[in-house]
Amino acid sequence: MGIVSPGESLAPGELLVILRHAPHGSSWLREGLEAAMVAAAFGREVGLLFTGEGVLALLEGQQAGALGQKGSDNLLAALEMYDVERCYVDAAALERRGLSENDVSLLPVTVLAHADVVALTQCFSRVLSF
């Protein structure tokens, strides 16, 4: 975990998956993570950006729903196996929810300030939004 300055460690990439939905409330988050893993399995260099409600995916202590519905934490745990290692989180989205980088411990993530969120969308050649 760390904070990058503009232009630094924002290497070009092939596919940026933006995750904007919380776990459990819909299938958007799981589907986004699955899309990222499929692309990575085909050898694409994939990055993940957690923003909006998507930052909640990174909180520890998640579990299955009352009816056994899967969350997203099991998928997060599989990302490393697929070599999805570039994970970013939007500092503004964290702050709005009263969270800090200490709260997002489920994955090693880089916290991005506003200018870096913009730069991230520019340095990946494709973007999918979930």
């Binding site: 070009p12 904007r20 520019q122 340095c123």
Partner: peptide, 27 residues
Amino acid sequence: VVNNCMNLHLLNRSPFSSRVYEDVLNA
């Protein structure tokens, strides 16, 4: 990669009922 490339953002939610527009502006 062009660092100053231009992206087109598409928004299909009303700002009166959804705050997604804030995420758009942020990106």
